Each structure stands twice: as structure tokens, then as C-alpha cells.
Computed example of a mutant assay.
Amino acid sequence: MLEIDVKKQLSSSSFAFEFKHSIPCQGVTAILGVSGSGKSTLINLINGLVKPDHGNITLNQVTLVSTTQNIFIPPEKRNIATVFQDALLFPHYKVLKNLTYGIKKLSSQKLDEMIEVLNISHLLNRYPAMLSGGEKQRVAIGRALLTNPQLLLMDEPLSALDMPRKKELLSYIDQLIHEIKIPVIYVTHNINEVKRIANYVVILEQGKLKDFGEKDSILQTDYLKEWL
């Protein structure tokens, strides 16, 4: 279980971000909201790139942040992986090196399985400049999962892709979710992505939690149809 109770004043926004809820560490939880609703702020509070002004975050009963106890686990020690909008690959390394960079213990079996699931065996000797946007994101997802994280965060991984690449990558993500069995928090403003892969949905509006629930229940709400 991911338990969050935080407040953060955003200098670039007129509202203060507040979030208090528990998110199941199973399946896919979609964070849905329009631009500026606080989706990326929530992701970066979880992975440690942003510090809350007040509050606490615990993951599977391990305290990641507690402002009252002066606890702040740095991002690299949280065992949480993040895939951003930009794949952020090293341009001077080939795909294989990008996949394994910084990983101290990695079994060849796990690497082979990831390469097969993501269908990137034919890309291993290419540099990032030779890849399409969708191929870059598949490599970024593979690199994230090879760190063996407890939780995978995905911050609008399809937003920079054209429609054919979006459909292609979404299919790979859907397959990964069923095969790897790792909890995912998936940020998007696209309701069709939510319909495709989510189990739970968090609705953010103006930096506040508007609703949370199972996908089928949330998607039936009248305000969501009007709002999006």
C-alpha cells in the first residue's frame, strides 16, 4: 500500500497541492486530470524529486517522507522507477548499454525476458538517435523495470508520440503489466488510456483529490464526462 498525506505550495501555481489517500500497490492506478491539475507534482512527491512542505509518504509500511520526524529518503534509495515523457536515454550509449547502465546485479535471463517482451532485440546495437519515439520509450521502460523496483511510475509516457506510436506503445505497456506483475501509477490526461489499462483511477482537480475508485465506477460519473 502507498499511503500519502502531503501538502506542497507550488511557486508556479496559484493553488497549494494537497493529497491524502491510500493507493493499492497492485495493478494500474491512473492519475487523471487536465494540464496543471497536479499530476506530475504527485508523481514527483512519490519518487522524491519534490519535497512536501508538510506530511508523510509510506510505501509498503516503509516511511519515505515524514516532515514531523525529519525523514526524507532520497530518490535513488526509494526503489521506485519513473518513466518520463522524454525517454532520457544516454545519446552516446547504444540501446544495450542504456538498458543495463547503473545496474549492479542483473541476471542474463531477466535481461533476455525484458528484451523479448518489449521486442527490442533488433535495436540493441543502435544509438538513441536512430530510434523512433516509441522505440525510445520502450527502452526507457525496460531500463526502469530492470532495476527491479517495488513501484513503477509513468508520467504521460505517450504524450510526445503520434497516434500510431501511441497505440503501439500502449499495447506493449498493457502486455508488460500482465506479465511483469508490478504495481504501476500511470499519469495521463487521456481517458482512452485509462479505459485501456487502469484498474483504479485518481481524479485531480486544481491540486486537490476530487475522486478515487475502481475504474468502472469512476468512468460512470457524470462530472467526469462533462469535465473531460
Rank of each mutant, 00 (worst) to 15 (best):
S40T: 13
I4F: 06
R78K: 07
S11W: 06
N56V: 02
Q150E: 08
F90E: 02
G27W: 08
I177T: 01
V28G: 02
V95F: 10
L228W: 15
S159G: 10
S22L: 11
I4D: 03
L209T: 13
Q206S: 14
T147F: 13
Y172S: 04
D216S: 13
L170A: 15
L176Q: 05
P24G: 05
F17D: 12
I57Y: 02
D155H: 12
S217T: 15
K215C: 09
V34T: 12
V184F: 00
E113F: 13
V65F: 13
L131F: 05
V50P: 00
G36M: 03
I177K: 08
K225P: 03
K7I: 12
T41L: 08
K215L: 08
G213W: 06
P149H: 07
I173T: 01
P183T: 03
H178I: 01
A160Y: 04
A140N: 10
K195Y: 09
L45T: 02
G134N: 11
S37D: 00
Y223I: 15
K136N: 08
S13G: 00
Y172T: 03
E168I: 04
D211N: 14
L123M: 12
A81R: 12
P157M: 07
Q109M: 09
I203Y: 10
V202S: 06
I57K: 01
L123V: 09
L228V: 15
L99S: 05
I120T: 07
V6T: 07
T188Y: 03
I80F: 01
F212P: 03
T58P: 02
G55K: 01
F15P: 13
E135D: 06
V95G: 07
K136Y: 09
V194N: 02
E135A: 12
P52R: 06
M1C: 06
E168P: 00
V184Q: 02
I71F: 05
L146W: 14
K51M: 13
V187E: 04
L49G: 06
M154K: 10
S159F: 10
Q69I: 00
